[in-house]
């Protein structure tokens, strides 16, 4: 060989934690909370309209102490988890079916697309008529909410797999399992994770709506109940809970996304 090309990977750079970057996202919330506290403490706004952060924190402590918050949380958590799991399960199943088979696509997809255009919340009266205000109706609503984003994105993810890479896997004689795990799933993963993130969002939304229309437990009920007695601080505790739960579940999926999609070469801003 006459031509020598030497290429070596340079040592990977040590990651330095940049404290400035870590603090940036907190600047705006902290300023708002301080201003909020001041507005309340100085008596500009009445407490039953806007309780101060310190008051909300105390209420939070009380609700946590007497176990009430935890009770509502478990009830809500169960509903979301069940509905989400059901919706995602069926969504994956149908999405994979229609993704792989044109026949399944032509039989199933048009009907589902039609159903998808009906706003979910418009179905609530029907659900109350059919299932009453019990657990089943709520879980079912949540699962429908979780179903569509998962279904649509699984289907799309599979159909977006590059035909050229499928050709490679045929040339190399991958087994069906190899094709699935080395080509189709990794390629569809960005869409799959997007579908799951969207499904989580809708699950929380539908949960709140469901819990506000007749039930005796759950964070949504807690908020509704507190409103009736003008306990604005409890309303806020409920809202903060929803914000925290939504953010946590979303961050979890986002973390998985970042870890499993590090091969991607995309614009990072």
């Amino acid at each position: 060989m006459t031509v020598e090309i030497s290429e070596k990977l340079s040592e990977p750079q040590k990651k330095k934690i940049n404290w400035l970057n870590v603090t940036y996202p907190w600047i705006v919330p902290i300023v708002i909370v301080i201003a909020w506290q001041l507005v309340g403490s100085l008596g500009f706004v009445e407490e039953h309209i806007l309780p101060t952060p310190s008051k909300i924190l105390t209420t939070f402590g009380t609700l946590l102490g007497n176990g009430e918050l935890f009770y509502h949380l478990t009830v809500s958590g169960q509903r979301v988890l069940l509905g989400f799991a059901l919706g995602v399960g069926v969504g994956v199943l149908l999405g994979v079916m229609t993704g792989f088979s044109r026949l399944a696509q032509e039989v199933i997809d048009p009907s589902l697309q039609m159903l998808r255009t009906v706003p979910l919340l418009a179905l609530i009266p029907l659900f109350i008529l059919w299932f009453g205000v019990g657990e089943f109706g709520k879980v079912f609503m949540i699962s429908i909410g979780a179903f569509f984003p998962v279904y649509v994105n699984f289907f799309l993810g599979i159909r977006l797999v590059d035909q050229k890479l499928i050709e490679v896997s045929e040339i190399l004689q991958f087994s069906f399992w190899g094709k699935l795990t080395k080509v189709i799933i990794p390629s569809a993963l960005p869409n799959i994770l997007l579908g799951i993130r969207l499904a989580l969002g809708t699950s929380w939304l539908v949960l709140v709506v469901g819990e506000m229309m007749g039930t005796s437990a759950g964070i949504g009920y807690m908020i509704q109940d507190a409103r009736a007695y003008a306990q604005t601080d409890i309303v806020f505790v409920g809202l903060v809970m929803f914000a925290l739960l939504g953010k946590c579940s979303d961050s979890l999926v986002y973390a998985i996304e970042r870890k499993s999609l590090k091969w991607r070469d995309t614009f990072k801003g």
Binding site: S169, F174, W177, G178, K179, V183, P186, S187
Partner: peptide, 13 residues
């Protein structure tokens, strides 16, 4: 396969 490292690309399945 963009999601596989060089050695895994070569090894395939």
């Amino acid at each position: 396969f963009p999601w596989l490292t060089v050695e895994k690309n070569i090894a395939g399945d």
